[in-house]
């Protein structure tokens, strides 16, 4: 490999905080909403339609002074299955990890079945993830499957 000059960062670096990389461009705002970044008081920088060697186009989010639990960050796997989480301290990368599709999804996705009780009474939805690759969610209540293409966020 030849030694390439370091390219200028499209979205500027942060001293302390979290970078979420490899988000599909179209889902950057969805990710912000899922993580509550639309309401945070911390500084949030983001970019969409950036060039990615792996995926063609990508989005990125940087949050100053905020760190996420696995349980929290894994929620975004539904809209950003290939996302990478990078933890920055003093401008250094101290941790890098992939998001994982969780085994259970609660209070996040609507059940696709219009006749499901969760669409009739104020009940937090609960799903078991029965297929992580192709994303198939089994409703704890009506026992019907909500497929990837039918996922709607609450």
């Amino acid at each position: 490999m030849t030694d390439q000059p370091r390219k200028e960062l499209v979205v500027s670096a942060i001293e302390n905080g979290t970078v979420i990389d490899h988000i599909p461009s179209a889902n950057v705002f969805q990710v912000m909403k899922i993580l509550g970044l639309d309401k945070t008081e911390n500084q949030v920088l983001f970019g969409t339609n950036l060039i990615s060697r792996k995926y063609g186009s990508k989005g990125i989010i940087k949050v100053r002074n905020q760190f996420f639990e696995d349980r929290e960050i894994n929620k975004i796997s539904l809209v950003a299955p290939n996302a990478t989480l990078i933890v920055i301290k003093d401008f250094n990368i101290v941790e890098k990890r992939q998001v994982q599709v969780p085994d259970k999804i609660e209070s996040m996705v609507k059940c696709f079945n219009p006749k499901c009780i969760t669409n009739h009474e104020a009940i937090p939805t609960r799903f078991k993830v029965v297929d992580k690759e192709d994303l198939r969610l089994l409703c704890h209540y009506c026992e019907k499957i909500t497929k990837k293409e039918n996922v709607q966020f609450i």
């Binding site: 006749k115 009780i117 009506c142 026992e143 019907k144």
Partner: peptide, 25 residues
């Protein structure tokens, strides 16, 4: 008639619930 209603009822009730049919479920 609503699917999943029996599961919900069993979580809310302080006594056991027998499902005698919840919609098409």
């Amino acid at each position: 008639p609503i699917e999943g209603s029996a599961r919900w009822a069993s979580e809310v009730a302080s006594v056991p619930v027998i499902n005698a049919g919840d919609g098409a479920n």
